[in-house]
């Protein structure tokens, strides 16, 4: 899968999750960084602390190469049913989910195998 398709699928799955909450506004921002990509998605809908905690857990789950190489292909493509962010969690280098004044902000850092987190804008406390 080339980089363009890969990013499109990630955005597809994330958007699917956000849109399930029927927000009035959703903002997607994509930055090319030194060693990969920083994807950020925001909405204006209220989310509970439990949901944010669950999302943080799912998106920072243990890397599962035996699953990502096979079932990971479903990310952003097979969208009938509830969105599944755990599929993303296996594939991204780092993720943070936080509350904003209005809604939620999901940051994803995506890099290749030679990923060097010093070249990313990952917050230090993460």
């Amino acid at each position: 899968m080339n980089q363009k398709n890969y990013i499109m699928h990630l955005i597809g799955e994330l958007s699917s999750y956000i849109l399930e909450g029927e927000p009035k506004r959703m903002v997607i921002s994509l930055h090319q960084e030194k060693d990969g990509i920083h994807l950020c998605i925001l909405d204006e809908k209220e989310h509970s602390d439990e949901e944010i905690e669950r999302l943080n857990m799912e998106m920072n789950s243990k890397k599962r190469p035996e699953l990502s190489g096979y079932y990971g292909a479903m990310v952003g493509k097979d969208l009938l049913g509830t969105a599944r962010l755990d599929l993303l969690g296996w594939q991204v280098k780092h993720a943070t989910v936080s509350k904003t004044s209005e809604g939620i902000k999901i940051d994803l850092w995506i890099g290749g195998d030679s990923f060097d987190d010093r070249n990313f804008t990952i917050p230090k406390e993460a």
Binding site: Y70, M74, L79, L80, G81
Partner: peptide, 15 residues
């Protein structure tokens, strides 16, 4: 098998 398995997965979307 791998190419076909991934293609088949999309047909039923994991069901």
């Amino acid at each position: 098998l791998p190419s076909l398995a991934i293609a088949m997965l999309h047909l039923h979307q994991g069901y």
